[in-house]
Design a protein around this nucleic acid. Structure first.
Lengths: 214, 214
DNA sequence: CATTCACAGTACCGTACGGTACGGTTCGCC
DNA sequence: GGCGAACCGTACCGTACGGTACTGTGAATG
């Protein structure tokens, strides 16, 4: 696959990927406080010296973790299918559910917490990295879907980004933040389906053409 | 005013409030990392021993900071005015702008980052505190406004919380999270007005009665 | 077999932080 | 004036962490 990976994202050896995996697991069930260099080394059965050789310093390790995770989530599906009102709605609901499930994922929550914790420090770059590789990526899928809907005469909007912003807000609202703040996410996962349907329904009422409601 | 403060929120002496103020300022422009007990003591011209006597331990200090800040933002305006389509829209836009400006505030961002950073640890309570005193409080204002709109026949909705959730999502979308991740908030403050208007416009299209669009 | 390389394991160092203890000072009160 | 409470400033302690250096080991290479 490979597809000319982003130049700023160096690829790591399998061994190093294993280490990053261990570090992510450690972060997920221990929080940022548990993510010490010694802890990562112990969990991954490697030496601290190797960590520093491979990733430079702690921040380099964190960046590598984010890049690694993003590379695993790299989601794209080219739905070259011709859209009808029903299939558009189905695809939107599917997108909404996927989005909610990604946001509610253990690793996603842990990484977002990590990046937010580092956001106050200068530089840090972690926030923009998450932003770039996370939302931008999934936003492209939504953007393509929206434009396909417009091309099929099912959606009416001027600015694609505005429409996506609205869709995102209808789907997520402050759910993401509540989960980041520690609200039990397991309890609300069961409602994702209904939530996705309601959000898409509202979105279609706002941006659907009369043709789509026929 | 006083109005029987929450029993779990002890009131502090003026001196202690000053200390909390200094601590908040320190947190705002230094991030969580800068919020050390020694730093707070130095910034507030008090001794560490006093900090521990007053607030128990570091977590107690953090809780006190959140409670203190929430007590300052206690916003409620009883608009006992009779609503028309225009005044409802004005009030909603005003609410939206206020909400955006609160969320974009230095202190709000810093406290949310702090609570999110502590969310992975057990207990912690900071997240629920922020949630309770932050969103719940401002949500009551919105809820009252929505119900007043419904009573006036201008809004149509079944569940008030659902409607508020939609309104919140339309206003905020992922803006809050982006700011928490470090995206420059100053650049987008200027758009709050337009954003508020667009969100309220969409909300009224979804939940407004035909009477309100007349 | 000798050499080299990559790495684990561990000991170590400097520092920073949470929390405690203590001397000195101010202020109210009898 | 004498006394005690509150409190500041600072020194101190234990610990934990980021980062470095050193030793041992196994596997590849010649």
């Amino acid at each position: 696959m490979q597809l000319a990976a982003h130049p700023h994202q160096p690829d790591y050896s399998p061994r190093q990927n294993d280490v990053l995996d261990s570090a992510l697991r450690l972060l997920v069930d221990g929080g940022e406080k548990a993510l010490t260099t010694a802890g990562v080394a112990r969990a991954a059965n490697c030496s601290k010296e190797s960590l520093y050789k491979w990733f430079g310093d702690r921040d380099g390790l964190l960046s590598a973790m984010i890049g690694f995770q993003a590379s695993k989530v790299r989601t794209f599906d080219d739905t070259a299918e011709t859209l009808t009102a029903e299939t558009l709605q189905e695809h939107l609901v599917l997108f909404a559910r996927d989005l909610l499930e990604v946001l509610a994922g253990d690793v996603s929550l842990a990484l977002n917490r990590l990046a937010i914790g580092q956001a106050s420090r200068d530089g840090s770059k972690l926030g923009s990295m998450l932003q770039e590789r996370g939302r931008r990526q999934i936003g492209k899928r939504a953007g393509a879907l929206l434009e396909a809907g417009r091309d099929a005469g099912l959606l009416v909007f001027g600015d694609r980004d505005d429409a996506y912003d609205t869709l995102y807000g209808l789907i997520v609202s402050d759910l993401h933040l509540r989960m980041l703040l520690g609200e039990d996410s397991g309890r609300m996962v069961k409602d994702f389906g209904r939530r996705a349907e309601k959000a898409v329904s509202a979105f279609l009422r706002l941006y659907g053409s009369e043709k789509s409601s026929a």
